[in-house]
Amino acid sequence: MAVKVYPNIYKQEIPLPKNPLRAINSYIILSEDRNLIIDTGFNTEECKKSLMDGISELNIDLSKTDLLVTHLHSDHSGLASDLSKEGVRIYAGKIDGKMINQMIYREYWAKYEAYMKMFDLEKDNVSFEEHPGYKFSPKEPIDFIPLEEGNVLKVGEYSFEVVDIPGHTPGHIGLYEREHKLFFCGDHILDKITPNITFWGFDRDILSVYFNSLKKVYQYDIQLLFTAHREIVRDHKKRINELLSHHEHRLNEVKNIIKENKMTVRDTAANMHWELRYDKWEDFPSAQKWFASGEAMSHLEHLAYTEKAQKTDEDGILYYKLNN
């Protein structure tokens, strides 16, 4: 059921079966001219039915509707290709839009085979084919309309400014409505749970990138922060402080893990605390081992970038140890 959360703005909660996130909030903004949908759910029949039920309930004409994909993850972009076939114009940030189209091809996922070795995940017999990004992403190229910071999307009485908020992904974007003090933030800030900050390559300290994006949004005048998972946030500054504190705790946890002995990414992740229903690392599903290792890696790389830890490569496997 589409729930009205603000004048002409509805939230459609789309179930994500067998996923710890449980559901994604897709937002639908109505106007007499063109409507706007924000994020879609996985490329699965269950998600498609839920999204289309909300569209039907609101009596939306898809030929007069646009879709904005906040970032590349498949729970946000999965149905973009399907909607495009229905005549929907598709918007995405320049960086993540390009990456979504790259994810169609197995060549993109070849780097995950390299990560498997680098993270020391080969001993767990994981496969990128179990990664939700591979399983549930669009399977056909999408003719995105690229967006960048400062672009404006007008939807009825609302004027949404595009804001670059990288960190959760390299090209994550959000929408800010200055007059009404509304911000659609995708996975940049979440209520109750913390966004996964993973490894995106050695060319950047992605955790520092994320911190800077959090501090950027902190300065905005926001009354309602529309998140992609769980509940709407009404005090974004309080939540941002909580997220920064969470990562400070995480970094201290990782420091303690690599304090005495050099550790692989996989073994660091296995020793971290996770809010999951599994008692031990061996019980983690393949997808969760990918997510946990990616988050461990972003924190380890941050410590290496800030010269608090040293990194060594031994036969293609990375080891980290805290500097004395």
Rank of each mutant, 00 (worst) to 15 (best):
K4N: 14
P7R: 15
N8Q: 14
K11D: 00
L16H: 03
P17F: 10
P20L: 06
A23N: 11
A23R: 11
I28N: 01
D33N: 15
I38M: 07
I38H: 10
D39R: 03
T40C: 09
N43W: 02
E45N: 13
K48V: 00
K49I: 11
K49T: 13
K49Q: 12
I60D: 08
D61S: 12
V69N: 01
V69L: 09
S74L: 09
D75A: 14
L83S: 02
I90T: 03
I95R: 14
Q102R: 14
Y108I: 06
W109H: 10
K111T: 08
A114I: 15
M116E: 13
M118C: 06
L121R: 11
L121I: 06
D124E: 14
E130Q: 13
P132G: 04
G133M: 13
F136K: 10
P138G: 07
E140F: 10
P141R: 00
E149I: 04
N151H: 15
N151C: 04
E157A: 04
S159W: 01
F160E: 12
V163Y: 06
I165N: 06
I173D: 01
L175G: 05
E179V: 11
F184L: 07
L190E: 08
D191N: 07
N196I: 13
W200R: 09
F202W: 12
R204K: 15
S208T: 12
Y210L: 07
S213C: 09
L214W: 02
Q219D: 12
Q223S: 13
L225W: 03
F226Y: 11
H229N: 14
R234Q: 10
K238V: 02
E242V: 02
L244F: 05
S245T: 01
H247D: 13
H249R: 15
N252S: 14
V254I: 15
K262A: 14
M272F: 04
H273D: 14
R277Y: 05
P285Q: 11
S286C: 09
S286Q: 13
S286I: 14
A287H: 13
A287K: 14
W290C: 05
E295N: 08
A296F: 01
M297W: 11
H299W: 00
Y305R: 07
Y305N: 09
E307L: 10
K308E: 15
A309P: 06
T312F: 09
L318Y: 10
Y319V: 06
Y320G: 07
N323W: 01
N323T: 12
